[in-house]
């Protein structure tokens, strides 16, 4: 059997596929961040906490109400999105006219508080959540669990739908216009503040949905968000802040890069994304798909 750089090709295919699966999470989370940043100009640092809340929401629905994964998949994003809307109305709304930094500080503080509350309540090791789709298929070069396949499909669908709504529909056009010039759009009789509020709710809902998708794979733990959020921010920066398509493509691509690093030099797998980020920032400060404003 021939080998490629010391690794048999089957193993390489397997790792590529795994990279795509992990990339699916990066893509979904960075998509939410990109939507929020693109439309609201808010750097949403609570995103990791909201992802974690999505997972916990699924766990609580199962434990206390007996509602299974598929219900949680619909209910949890709505609940978490509603929570996001509440945050927007109470806090974020007051910061739109200030510098980005204020929004960042506020959301960062909020995420620390939310994570602290959950850690205090549930401990740091987390809670188990059963896999709703056990088993898998042997593809010859690797064993693909059904659930992971479902995650990739679901995340691709969600990413495409979001992109389509924002870039190709009338509603999306209103949204983009409202970001460019809110006063003018309002003059046409469109309720801009409400639209912004719903957009934030949607972005947060996406984080919640990613959380539900993650619950059966990872431990439902208060720390799961903070482990991921920094990487996701790097993805957004590499893709170009606010670029929707950019964040999706970069998410998947970086998942693959990280997967390959895990084969060739596993010790560096947690840092490789930041090395890429540094290089991209040097060469293209606006990110790969971003436009300089």
């Amino acid at each position: 059997m021939f080998e490629l750089l010391g690794v048999p090709p089957q193993a390489l295919f397997g790792q590529l596929l795994l990279g795509l699966i992990n990339g699916a999470f990066y893509a979904m989370l960075s998509l939410g961040l990109a939507v929020i940043f693109g439309m609201l100009n808010v750097i949403n640092f609570t995103h990791g906490a909201q992802y974690m809340m999505g997972a916990f929401c699924a766990w609580m629905l199962l434990k206390f109400l007996g509602l299974n994964y598929w219900f949680a998949l619909i209910l949890a994003p709505i609940i978490i999105g509603a929570f996001g809307i509440l945050l927007e109305r109470l806090f974020l709304r007051r910061l739109y006219n200030l510098d980005h930094l204020y929004g960042l500080l506020l959301t960062f503080g909020l995420s620390l508080i939310i994570e602290g509350v959950f850690r205090n309540q549930f401990g740091s090791t987390g809670q188990p959540y059963d896999n709703p789709l056990p088993g898998g298929q042997n593809l010859g070069f690797m064993f693909l669990p059904y659930y992971r396949a479902w995650v990739v499909v679901a995340s691709l669908l969600v990413c495409l739908a979001t992109w389509f709504v924002i870039e190709r529909t009338r509603l999306g056009a209103y949204l983009r216009a409202a970001t460019e010039n809110p006063t003018l759009v309002q003059a046409f009789g469109i309720n801009v503040p409400r639209m912004i509020m719903l957009t934030y709710g949607f972005g947060v809902g996406l984080a919640g949905l990613a959380g539900v998708l993650a619950a059966p794979i990872y431990q439902v733990s208060p720390l799961m968000g903070s482990n991921l959020i920094i990487i996701v921010f790097a993805v957004v920066v590499i893709g170009g802040m606010g670029s929707i398509l950019g964040s999706v493509i970069t998410g998947f691509a970086l998942g693959v890069v990280e997967g390959l690093t895990k084969v060739f030099y596993p010790e560096a797998s947690s840092t490789v994304i930041f090395v890429i980020m540094a290089i991209v920032l040097l060469v293209r400060p606006a990110g790969l798909f971003g436009q300089t404003r």
């Binding site: 397997g14 790792q15 992990n22 690797m142 794979i217 482990n227 840092t271």
Partner: peptide
């Protein structure tokens, strides 16, 4: 060898 605090082990498990 994986970094401390890794969330996805699938690659290593494979």
């Amino acid at each position: 060898r994986h970094p401390l605090n890794t969330s996805d082990f699938s690659s290593f498990l494979l």
